[in-house]
Design a binder for these strands. Structure first.
Lengths: 112, 112
DNA sequence: TAGCTACATATTGGCTGCCAATATGTAGCA
DNA sequence: TGCTACATATTGGCAGCCAATATGTAGCTA
């Protein structure tokens, strides 16, 4: 998958992998990798600022935890985050329907 | 649909609406609008440079035609353009599968 | 004959938002 | 000592679409 592919859909991805429970940044990267079958490879320069922003926006909250001497920041969804995830999914569907209907009108999701 | 939504998928859209026959720029805009159910509204500052680029890349060829005193440039797919369209469709499917499998794992196209 | 809308093409500059590169540190293993 | 994995953070770059702007034809209306 080419670089920059997630542009415009990053927030949804982050919220989605946090739906089943808290994760820290590094684990989010591997979770996205795993769930996408290796297709999506987010960078730290991408997700850390994004997680920060989502927390400032109230969609996430975070807690520092310690593993030995290591510190990691675990993020979890807030109620607003859950709502934001639903919204992200809705707009993803609208987006794929719109592009798909032009690009591939015969495919399911296309306008026919 | 929010501005900038087509980012990364514009070429495919343009090639797709030209699949059934030649169109000029203005008609491409309305064709994309119509096929997307009004969701996608491309701007001239978006498509004219893109059409130009696609022609330089050999995916399109163009001919000027006259309607009364008006001049319009009709674009049509080349063989390379048809191949590019197939490629754009393939990468669109890969893209939606990748994002979808993270964002919406239960939906068709998701990884499950 | 001025003004409006639709049709039609083209260019410039700006900004969003992701990424590459870089920095820093712990921890285990060879 | 050096490598890899784990872990977070920041800076600068830039691709690529869009907004704004410019220019022109053509038909309608008042």
């Amino acid at each position: 998958m080419k670089s920059d592919a997630v542009r415009g859909h990053l927030d949804g991805l982050l919220l989605a992998v946090l739906e089943q429970g808290p994760l820290h940044g590094y684990a989010i990267i591997t979770a996205v990798q795993r769930r996408s079958g290796g297709a999506l490879d987010l960078r730290t320069g991408t997700i850390y600022p994004a997680l920060n922003r989502l927390e400032r926006q109230g969609l996430l909250r975070s807690d520092w935890e310690s593993v030995g001497e290591r510190r990691r920041r675990a993020y979890e969804l807030t109620d607003a985050g859950r709502a934001g995830l639903a919204e992200a999914r809705a707009s993803w569907r609208a987006f794929t329907a719109a592009i798909g209907s032009v690009l591939d009108p015969t495919a399911p999701g296309g306008a026919g």
